[in-house]
């Protein structure tokens, strides 16, 4: 089942880069829902292609957070991956049957929590 916005976010033909090399299409679980993405691409990319914007909620104010820097620096995109919290999904490659869950609270980033 694809969410709104879904595959439309993928760039099929780029005027300069043409096509993008991708791994094989695999299934993964997002909060219990089966989704598809390409093996080896960042988890955050697969989620965005499926229309997922929210990666976690802050512990203090329960504010939603999503991808911000996309290079592993800001920790906004951390989620629970295969049971392990605080995984930066923007730089962690997607693997078949991965279990990805929205994270509530518990983040390493102190600065975030004060916002």
């Amino acid at each position: 089942m694809l969410k709104e916005g879904s595959e439309l976010m993928r760039i099929d033909h780029h005027p300069i880069l043409k096509t993008f090399e991708k791994g094989k299409l695999v299934k993964f679980l997002y909060d219990g829902e089966v989704m598809e993405g390409y093996e080896g691409e960042p988890i955050a990319v697969a989620l965005r292609a499926n229309g997922v914007m929210i990666h976690r909620y802050t512990s203090k104010h329960n504010d939603p957070r999503g991808v911000f820097c996309a290079i592993g620096r800001c920790t906004d995109c951390v989620m629970v991956v295969d049971g392990e919290p605080n995984i930066r999904t923007c730089i962690t490659p997607l693997q078949e049957d991965m279990k990805i869950e929205t994270q509530h609270g518990i983040s390493n980033n102190k600065e975030d929590e004060s916002i």
Binding site: R10, I11, F20, K22, V45, R48, V67, A70
Partner: peptide
């Protein structure tokens, strides 16, 4: 981040 998504990963 916009550049990383669109130019490296082919995602708008």
């Amino acid at each position: 981040a916009a550049q990383t998504m669109m130019n490296l990963h082919g995602l708008k």
